[in-house]
């Protein structure tokens, strides 16, 4: 199909201090209905969106972090996390949720969705897109 475009959602904010992260997630889920070629990028403070063990009950907000684990169901399985951003924040991939998708072509084999990439690799990924949406 020639009308499939490459979409990249760039996430650069922490999850609860502002509304950007939740807004981005909702746009991603709504946009998934259009069956485009979607990638998600988590850079700078955006890497905090994927941490495991989030519990915002104490600040009176809804915990939307489980929703990231549903992204595989929506055929969103290219989730790029910038290595330098993790390192500057004292985080590793082990601090993040384990996001997976099931490959229908390989008898629903479970595969990892998150790929940790360097800033220069991220720049290449950004360069390959038709449409970039920033949050």
């Amino acid at each position: 199909m020639s009308d499939v475009k490459k979409f990249l959602y760039v996430n650069r904010k922490q999850p609860y201090g502002t509304i950007y992260a939740l807004e981005s997630l909702e746009v991603v889920l709504i946009g998934a209905a259009f069956e485009q070629d979607v990638s998600l990028a988590f850079v700078d403070d955006g890497v905090y969106q994927l941490t495991k063990g989030q519990d915002p009950s104490g600040i009176g907000m809804k915990n939307f972090s489980p929703t990231y684990t549903a992204l595989g169901d929506y055929d969103i399985n290219k989730i790029y996390v910038e290595k330098e951003s993790l390192e500057a924040r004292g985080l590793t991939i082990d601090d993040l949720q384990h996001l997976t998708w099931e490959d229908e072509d390989e008898d629903w084999a479970e595969k990892d969705s998150i790929r940790v990439v360097s800033a220069s690799e991220m720049a290449e990924i950004m360069d390959q897109q038709d449409i970039v949406l920033s949050f």
Partner: peptide, 18 residues
């Protein structure tokens, strides 16, 4: 309960099938 969202119909269909 698990994902904190109601699935889109395409996702629902696939998941019910499974």
């Amino acid at each position: 309960e698990e994902y904190q969202i109601a699935p889109a119909v395409r996702v629902l269909t696939k998941a019910i099938g499974k």
